[in-house]
Design a protein around this nucleic acid. Structure first.
Lengths: 339, 339
DNA sequence: CCTCCTCGTGGAATCGATTACACGACTTCG
DNA sequence: CGAAGTCGTGTAATCGATTCCACGAGGAGG
């Protein structure tokens, strides 16, 4: 592969001049510029980003460590992050942690070794020493979706509290009184918050959230299945299951179907995170939708601000309830689902 | 950030020795090794991958350019690629082409500039000059899923011909005679092959595939919707719509639902690519499943073989039909869907 | 005891860029 | 007409690693 030296030789100038042309530095004669450009063309020269990065100490690359690529929510997030980054002149390297702290550390380390300019993280846990060290060392970082409390890093996330309240109101209005939740890992903020918001909303209706109606999931489908089976095995099973993310809702659906039961007649289902497939499931699933694309874009903007020396801003956007049919029919408020 | 020089100073040795310890080169005394390791520890030193890559001309990184991250099939592919690559000591940088040749070129160029060791591509079109140049220049490359005919690059893909035959047999057995297809872009091999396989299978049953039963899609949801609307507007609409990928099937479902019609009573639906959601759609969708994970792993192995100087192998794995309820009930062969 | 290896080590070149500094040619102005 | 810029250019240092080569110390063999 041709290097800058080859171009210089071909154009009959020094490497410095070639470099100046490439970075359009003003003091280059029109003649030299033309000759360099011609040489670049004939040699098919492309600057070596590795060498450039070494010299300038900038990679124009952002790292994005997400919890699970197979989750459509994170896929969409990744997509909007890449789009916004591209618009701002950055590339993105994605690391998939698969909800495993060790894998998350692997990717963070890898990205740091590659000297990315900044890191976007949706932490799977309370924060490994590695990540905390990186923050302390001054690595530009922004948390998306989930965050680590007590760490001075901007956070871009959705607030689902109001939407969860709306959901509980909706469920209560349909006559449901025994509500259960499939929680996310307690080590994640979203895992905790969603349970807390749910419990609080229930209290507002004089209901509470018993221990055995709080299943511990890990944001992946299999755990949703397992927890739902537990619920169905209970002496008095819940009337509604609220899954704290879309994959656990998928697992719950699997479990219900495996028993030959039907949603919402035998048990109602709602989920956090809305995705296109929820429109077409049987039945369509009531869900809390996050402004995913906007979150991704805001996160990139915050990170790039931080990298380029502007003060970054934390952003919180509201999530909203999307009512479908998985909790029962709304037109008829008298209807009960006491199977 | 500490560099190798700092470590050398801290340990009281030369940079050469530090480098030897780090790459565990045999001729280093136990004493020196211990001192270097201690220095590495106290300084929290991590080698700069950028510098290392410049010197060794190896990045231990693979590029993966896929057609559409939002397509669960490609998401799963990306995931298995990353897993296998990690197992073999490589990282992966993903570029999402979004079915756009210009974006595809953008990513290929970007990856080439970063001097990745090899490239995995699922081309969105017949091959840009850029990509052909890269092959000619000797960039290790492997095509996954789709490929470019006439280019000497190993291909790892699934063969759906037999499965499409099985599908047509299934449809014919259910009494369907007017079968339509939502095709993928003609510039992609999968776009062409699936139509060809479908047409051929129809011929075997004495049926043919009229012009107006062949809709042109682009593998994305919106095109599935548009084409399906076209089908429904026909004087004699088809009895079955076969979508050449899962997103177009989603679009088709949207279109059918928007008209207040039902699958499979009013029109039957089948798709290429099986995904977990198809189990839970209304109705569950009959699909042709690819061995996605295996494809990703095989592709990485082929690419790494090529990179490390072993002869790479093309791989073709069979896809298989998964019958569900979206084409009508199978237990009852007399049933007709002549709405 | 001298020669020849082997072993551990350090010095310095190198990868491909960017950029500070020096320098010569030309303008411009007093 | 000479001093002081300005402009375009080249030389060389630099980024952080790897690796070739040279060299001194110590051991083995004659």
């Amino acid at each position: 592969m041709a290097s800058i030296k080859d171009v210089a030789a071909e154009a009959g100038v020094s490497v410095a001049t070639v470099s100046r042309v490439l970075n359009d530095h003003p003091s280059v004669s029109a003649d030299a510029r033309a000759r360099v450009l011609a040489a670049v063309e004939t040699l098919g020269y492309r600057p070596n980003a590795v060498a450039r990065s070494l010299r300038t100490d900038q990679t124009h690359t952002l790292g994005l460590v997400i919890s699970d690529v197979m989750n459509p929510y994170f896929t969409e997030l990744a997509r909007s992050v890449e789009e916004e980054a591209r618009a701002l002149g950055y590339s993105v390297i994605i690391g998939n942690a698969d909800e495993r702290p060790d894998l998350q550390d692997h990717h963070v380390r890898n990205l740091l070794d590659r000297r990315i300019d900044g890191l976007l993280v949706s932490p799977t846990d309370g924060g490994s020493p590695l990540m905390l060290d990186a923050v302390r060392a001054g690595t530009p970082m922004v948390f998306v979706d989930r965050w680590i409390p007590g760490v001075d890093v901007p956070v871009v996330r959705a607030d689902g509290e109001a939407a969860v309240r709306d959901l509980v109101a909706h469920l209560h209005g349909l006559g449901h009184r025994r509500l259960a939740i499939i929680a996310g890992p307690a080590a994640t903020t979203t895992g905790q918050e969603r349970v807390a918001a749910f419990r609080e909303a229930l209290h507002a209706y004089g209901l509470d959230l018993p221990e055995d109606y709080t299943g511990q999931g890990d944001f992946q489908a299999e755990s949703g299945r397992r927890v739902t089976e537990g619920f169905l095995d209970l002496a008095t099973p819940p009337e509604v299951v609220f899954a704290a993310d879309n994959l656990m809702a998928l697992g719950a659906l699997d479990a219900v179907r495996a028993r030959g039961m039907r949603v919402p007649d035998d048990i109602a289902l709602a989920a956090f995170d809305d995705i296109p497939w929820f429109v077409h499931t049987d039945p369509p699933i009531t869900a809390i939708a996050q402004p995913t694309g906007e979150l991704g874009r805001a996160a990139v903007r915050a990170l790039v601000d931080r990298i380029e020396g502007r003060p970054p801003q934390s952003v919180t956007l509201p999530a909203r309830l999307v009512v479908r049919r998985s909790c029962g029919e709304n037109p008829n408020p008298v209807q009960r689902s006491t199977s």
